[in-house]
């Protein structure tokens, strides 16, 4: 195994290449155990208005150890750049890390990221001192533009959020990987550990998984399976995945066959 192969984002090293979202778990306890089983070091949360009529119950942050995980607030719910910047500023003022998973998804059916507003928000947030990880469509030109304005990663989607369809954007992601000088994180749509392995084999630097773990029959077991998928894919990439061929190439020697009797 590669002895020291950290994921480096904005100068910070992470041993795990799996980022995990906290949505849709059946309970905070299961979420906590799944995070542990995944060995992730980066965990996303959303921010929402408190329902002041129902303030009892535990807080999700009681279940996410800040010494163990980098808390990555997302800007989900933002319809435009201004709202995304507002959410990020709130999170930072409240003492969360100045890191933000930027997502601007005004359209509810496919939750596709708005490229124009995402770029605008990214520029403003970078200027404001944030480490910005933008969720984008698998658009190599946009990825380059985001990198140029100072984003710490680019996070192209594999398929629609929560769709579990896997990496349907292979060829565009491949171009993004080829051109990027910041880490590429495939975010959204990965529905099985094999999908995560496939992305990692392509040379992406990390993946972000939420739904596929959270709604699995056994989320803790699935978190461990994703850990292995990511690790397998990464090791395969580093090992040098052989090229595909259109015809057979024998694995056994084609000489020294037995003579007919």
């Amino acid at each position: 195994m590669a002895s020291h192969d950290p994921l480096v984002i904005a100068g910070r090293e992470f041993a795990s290449r799996l980022i995990v979202g906290t949505g849709k778990f059946g309970s905070f306890e299961v979420m906590r155990d799944a995070l542990e089983a995944s060995r992730t070091e980066i965990v996303t949360v959303a921010l929402r208005r408190v329902d002041l009529e129902a303030t009892g119950g535990p807080d999700i942050l009681e279940f996410i150890d800040p010494d163990r995980y980098l808390l990555l607030p997302n800007t989900s719910g933002a319809m435009d750049a201004e709202e995304a910047v507002r959410i990020a500023n709130l999170a930072r003022a409240a003492g969360m890390p100045a890191w933000v998973k930027l997502e601007v998804t005004p359209e509810p059916r496919y939750l596709l990221p708005d490229p124009v507003e995402t770029l605008k928000a990214a520029e403003a947030l970078v200027k404001g001192g944030f480490t910005v990880l933008p969720y984008i469509n698998a658009d190599p030109v946009l990825a380059k533009r985001l990198e140029e304005v100072g984003c710490a990663t680019v996070m192209p989607l594999g398929s629609w959020i929560g769709s579990n369809k896997g990496i349907r954007t292979c060829e565009a992601v491949q171009i993004i990987v080829e051109q990027a000088t910041v880490p590429v994180v495939v975010d959204a749509g990965l529905g099985a550990p094999s999908h995560a392995a496939e992305a990692m084999e392509m040379g992406v630097d990390a993946v972000l998984v939420n739904t596929a773990i959270a709604i699995a029959g056994d989320p803790v077991e699935m978190a461990g399976a994703f850990r292995l998928g990511v690790e397998a894919g990464r090791r395969a990439f580093l090992a040098g995945k052989p090229a595909e061929r259109d015809v057979a190439e024998a694995s056994s020697p084609l000489t020294g066959f037995l003579e007919g009797t």
């Binding site: 979202g21 906290t22 949505g23 849709k24 778990f25 979420m31 996303t44 949360v45 959303a46 921010l47 929402r48 208005r49 408190v50 002041l52 807080d59 999700i60 942050l61 808390l71 607030p73 997302n74 989900s76 507002r86 500023n89 709130l90 930072r92 003022a93 409240a94 003492g95 969360m96 959020i161 929560g162 959204a188 972000l208 939420n210 739904t211």
Partner: peptide, 28 residues
């Protein structure tokens, strides 16, 4: 305006103030 957490105890409310109280919730 985003209010820094360390200022919660000193920020006095005045008539008509508008507040948004927000929290972290589960999300990807």
């Amino acid at each position: 305006e985003a209010l820094e957490r360390k200022r919660y105890g000193e920020a006095r409310l005045t008539e008509g103030d508008r507040l948004e109280l927000v929290r972290a919730v589960a999300g990807g």
